[in-house]
Amino acid sequence: MPRRFGLKLAGILYYCLFAAAVFAQTTNPTAPRTENSKPTAVSPPDNPEPEGNNPNQAHQNQQATAPNQQAPSLGDLGFPSNETKPNPEEQARLDKRSHMLRIHQRLGLITTVPLVATVVTGSFAGGRSTSSTNRDLHAALGATTAGLYITTASYAIFAPKPHGIETRGPIRVHKALAWIHGPGMILTPILGAMAFEQKSRGEKVHGIASAHGPVAYVTAQTTALL
């Protein structure tokens, strides 16, 4: 008899607890109601675009949904902490890298101007031409090109390198070509200086200096390919 009474009491208590729990959930002020599923508090958007009647409006920095304790959080998704943790140092490195590579790109574009001019004036500086003015102009443009090229390259060389990133895409071609036009841009002015000396002495360009033209041509071609 007492056992049956105990079971009866347990049943009543359990039912009361269950009813109380359900009642507490339905009256929880933080839990959203069905009618509150759409945004209710709409703050003016930062976006200066006119709203019109377009339903697909983007509004910044506003909460569309009321806070919900049941809503999943980022921690529930199981991402490794190193993927979700902010890294200001890495951001600073990326900022510096992008800044340096932007300068690299702009200087590279600027360098193409004296490069083209050097190639054009080169056709008047060699061969049977005896004009020292053309040679001087060609030499000056060549020196400017080499100087700008080295400055441009240094911004890429000294830009911070990201960790653990495999190089993919057209940048691989860009980097591979640098192994051709880089040495070429060092060799060309050296050979050019030798050719200039020989020509200034009234000699015909000879020896390794005679490679100045072909080396310059290959260098200019690969540089132009970027």
């Binding site: 919900n68 979700t84 990326l94 895409g169 057209p170």
Partner: peptide, 26 residues
């Protein structure tokens, strides 16, 4: 498809400072 472009994207989107893109809806 281009690691250099992706790194620029991460930098421009402040992806190291804010490493996740999250979408919430109800």
């Amino acid at each position: 498809g281009d690691s250099n472009r992706d790194l620029h994207m991460i930098q421009a989107a402040r992806g190291a400072q804010f490493p996740m893109v999250t979408v919430r809806t109800r």
